[in-house]
Each structure stands twice: as structure tokens, then as C-alpha cells.
Design a protein around this nucleic acid. Sequence first.
RNA 1: GCCAUCGUAGCUCAGGGGUAGAGCACUUCCAUGGUCAGGAAGGGGUCGUGAGUUCAAUUCUCACCGAUGGCUCCA
Length: 640
Amino acid sequence: MVNITLPDGSVRQIEKGASSMDVAKSISEGLARNVVSAEVNGEIWDANRPINEDSTVKLFTWKDDGGKFTFWHSSAHLMAEALEAIYPGIKLGTGPAIENGFYYDVDPGEHKISSDDFPKIEAKMLELARQKNQFVRKEVTKAEAVDFFSRKGDEYKLELIEKRGEDEQLSLYTQGNFVDLCKGPHLADTSTIKAVKMMKVAGAYWQGDENRQQMTRLYGITFPKQKELTQYLQMLEEAKKRDHRKLGKELELFMFSEKVGAGLPIWLPNGTALRQRLEDFLKKAQIERGYQPVITPHIAKKELYETSGHWAKYGEDSFQPIQTPREGEVFLLKPMNCPHHCEIFGHRPRSYKELPLRIAEFGTVYRYEQTGELHGLTRVRGFTQDDAHLFCTTDQLKEEFLGVLDLTQHVLRKLGFEDYTAQISLRDPATPEKYIGSTDDWDKAEQAIIDATKEVGLETTTELGEAAFYGPKLDFMVKDALGRRWQLGTIQVDYQLPQRFELEYVGADGEMHRPVMIHRAPFGSMERFIGVLVEHCGGKFPLWLTTNQYAILPISDRFNEFAEKLKKELAAHDVRGFVDDRSEKVGRKIRDAEVKKVPFMLIVGESEVAEGKVSVRKQGEGDVGKMTVAEFASWFKEQL
RNA sequence: GCCAUCGUAGCUCAGGGGUAGAGCACUUCCAUGGUCAGGAAGGGGUCGUGAGUUCAAUUCUCACCGAUGGCUCCA
């Protein structure tokens, strides 16, 4: 017998060689039916893999992330089996589970797979799933694996095997007619896969290397119940309605023009009003926190970026230099504001008494992004950073960092973002050549970030190798409507630029010292932030931010004058909106205001004029009754 | 940049080798209506751009530009 410790601390005894499935059965039959895999001593295992020693076991059902992972991973194998059946000679790459479903990278050879083929693939998968084929694990040596895949002629699998150590134990999983090199775990059998949907087909480089073979990546998703698939597809439909590109068009926030160029958003009046209000909000918060606004030009001499190191690092891959016609001077379109701000710091001798010096600018920058990467407002070629650079002493670093963390969280909170994560990006110790600066400085900077986030109790993930070349950073990541994660606010510690620009201040000791620099942008960029914000709130912006807080809807033209008078009164209360004075029926005006997501509709007609009141209607909710303008204004302010 | 799909009126889209259509929006007129689309008439497109095939191209082919979904990338 072996002892199995469950997450609640209870211990159960099972026969040696029994599996986590048996553990589940010992608890209840119902649980056993739902168990898809288990975590055994920290490793995810097949539910039916024998356990031979005392272990801690955590059972996964479909409801757990670990369970979904198993379910979708097995589904990837099922899809591969279907593909082999439909397309003889197809070669397989890798096929993992992902956040929503799974994919398999395949080399279809002479076949061509398009979305037209999806129904065929789905049907085959369901047919195979119904065969209730068991997933059978087999441990093999590297030589055995090489032998198997050589005979099968799967060069991609062979390449994966080659990378493994000589003595490494590998495993194969078989279900039906399909065998794959795989670590597992997998479902007990295919029969629990009841609903199948092929999602999309795309190209993907083999091993993520753009110099290598382009594979066909097939995405799919599966569920244990048809109903869950239906719900998932409905959720996707809903998400599409919130897409900032769609809403941006409908609400006339921004546009793109082929003539102006890809990735260069043009802000329309509605979007500009919104954006300026956001800017004002942050400017105010920053001035309260001792930031000093500056303005710098949009171009600078190439020399500036040679000094900063950006030319060497990104010069080849940026917008190419601009030359003056006569003097032959060479300028670059500003890709970031930091070098300009370094010049501001360095333009005269600085005293420690001036530190921390916080220089802020809504700086518009231009970066060359490959055409294929452009995406709405979230990935563009010209954008405005809510940038600031904080120059401080090493001793002040942590406090400044905490101040920035506080500001960023204030911004996110005020805009209704609750669900975000913070990612700490550190060096990849394996590739030191990618970074500039001394190891000592890097250590200190990384530690400062880790300490500060711990101190405010921020939940963080840590990514090695994601740091900027000049320093580690902390990024706030927010999900968009379709579950894609975007980096918004960023805070970066930088020891390199002050050194490259030879920035110095006179300390209390009369000696010269080098300041530390913090780059930070709570929004990240106005473009991306607004893009994500639009999706986050589905176009219903926070009341304080929205352009039209109300619409006055006169019942007929006779009341337009009264409406205008109300508008003036509301303006005196600092509430902004407009009068819909079109000769339309009130039902129509309501519909249009609802579609434009105007938070409040004030309906005025005969009785309102007589009583000196307005009938208030709340967007998405309906009639709330009559009140005077003053009553409305104070009720409105309560909701700000 | 790479792979796939796509580009027809301001928007959403139908059509298809013989120079184009719907709904909404827009304009005008009628209607002045009480809580999610009142009625009628009208204007509007060298069918993304350029080249090729053809008697004839918006339709077929190629290139370019742009968009969408991925990949790679993201100072």
C-alpha cells in the first residue's frame, strides 16, 4: 500500500501501482467520471498512470486549468489522428494545448488545408472520439523513438528527439491508429471529447524561427458537452461586438487612411475629446506628484541615438534617417523620448537638491513595425506615450518606484481596470550579450523592482529574457475583449542612459554622482490604452470621461428652445451633453442615444416644461422618473 | 517581413466576362410624434491601385497598397 496525500491534507491508502483514477473512485464514482488528469508530486500525470510510492495527489477535472490543459492536449492528438486519416503523408510538428483550445503545426506536403476543410476534419475527429480509444503511455529510449519516427518518416519529430539527451527516457502515446511523441498527460480515452470546433488555420514558423519552414497551424477547441461549445462561441460573438476597431468606427473615435499609411491612427473629434480628457486627468495627477511637463521636437539628429545606443540596437530596423537637402544633416524620427529628456537633465549642472527630478511629456513617437504586426490602436507606427523620466539617487530609487506604482494603480483603478497582472521582466542569464551595462547595476535594478512590488503586495509574474536591453522593467498587462493580453503601463529602471549621456549631479559631499533613471508610462500609450479601454468598457466609458454625459431629447421641435436652456443650466453644474434637436420621434432619438451609449437621456415635452423638470432615462436601464435639473445634477455627481 | 483569407456607396454586405444592387446613413418634403428605428422622394460607386489576357475586365492572371487571423517582432 502507498499513502496518498490530498490537497485538503487528508491521507488515503491505495494499492501500489494503482492510479489517481483509483484515488478518485475511492472518493466517489461521480468524481471519477470527471477526472481527466492529476498532479502527482508536482508533475501532471495521466489519471491512470500507476503510482508506486507515497505521493501528494491533486485531481484535475474539466473545471481546473490543469484539467482543461489535459483535455485539449488529448484533443490535439485526436485532431492529428484525424489529419493523418484525411491527408496521407502529412507530417506533424508540435501540438500543444493553449489558453483556449489547442493547435497542431503540420506540414501538409502536397495537400492544402483551408477553413473549407474544417467540417470534414471535425466530422472525422468526432467519429474517432466515439471509438473510445484509450490513450496508452509507453516509455521508450531515445533510440527506440528515433527508430519509430524514422520508419514513419516524421522528420520534425526526429528533430525534436535529436535535442534530447542520450539517456533520456521518452514517452509515446497511442490512441487508435495514432502514435505521438509526448510527455503527456492524456485523458483515459477519447470518448469524453463530445464537441469539436476547428477555429482557424494560420502559418507558423517551425520552432518559431522565421528562417525555417513555414508550417500550417490548425487551431481547434473541444468540450465535454455540446452546450459548452455553444456558449463559448456565443462568448466570442459578444467579444467581437466590443472590438475597439468596430466601436472606434461606430463611435467615430478614430480612423485610418490608406493614403496616410498603415498603423497611423487619425483621431476624430470624439476620440480627441476623450483622449484629451484622459491626458488632463493624468497631467493633473502628475503635477500633484511633482512632475514637470516639457515639450521636445519630433525629430533629432542621428548622433543623439548613437549616444543613447538606440541607433546601434534598432537603427537597421527603424524608419530610415531623414536628410536635409543642403547641409546633409541626418535626423531620425523620434522613436522614444528618453534621449531628449536626458539632454534636459544634462543642459546645466544639477544639484542633489533637485532630485528626484521628474520630467514628463506626452511625447509622440514613431517606430517601424512590420506591416503584419499592425493591429487597430493596439499596435501602431505612430503613437503618443504618456512618458516621464525620473532622475534620482540610488537611495531614492525604491521610493520613486513605489510612487510610480501608486500612480499607475491609481490610473488603472480610476478607469475601471480591476483584472490586470504585473509582469517583471528580467535579463535572460543565458544571453548576456543582448544587454548593455554592468552586472552589478542590473542586479541592483532587478532587486529594486522585486522589493518594491513585494512591498505594495502587487501580484506579479516574472519573465526571464523579457527585459529591455538597457534595464529590467515592470509591465502592467491587461486583457482585451478577445482575451489577448496587452502591455499597458510600464516602469523601467535604467542605469545605462545616464551613463551614456554622462549625466551627473553634485552631491551633498560636493562630489559628482551619476543619477539613476526611471522610465514610466502609466497608460503606456494613448493609442493602446484607449483601444483596450474601449474593449474593456464596451464603449461605455466611465461617466467622468465620456464626451456626452447626457442627451436632451425634446418630444417635438416646439421644445428645442427649452432644451437649450436646460443645457446651459447643466453646463453651470459642470455636466456636459447635447440637445438632439432633429425632427424625429422621441423613440428614434432614444434608440440613437442608446446606440451611441450616452449615459443619460433627458426627455422634455409638455409636462416637463409645465413642471420645470426633466424625465430621466438611464442608458441600458430605462426610465428613472422626473426630477429638476438641480436634482439631476446632484444625482449625477453621486455616480461620478 | 512570412502564411492564409479578403478589398463592391459613408457603414454592413449581395452580385458577377457585356461598365452595378439592398439595408442603414445622407439630402429634401410630409408628419410634431411621450420612452430602442414614422412616411415618401432623391443624391451618391471610373467595384483598392497599376499592368496583363480578352472584341469586351468590377469579375480571370500578376504585382503593389490596405485589412483580417496567425507566425516572427515589439526600444
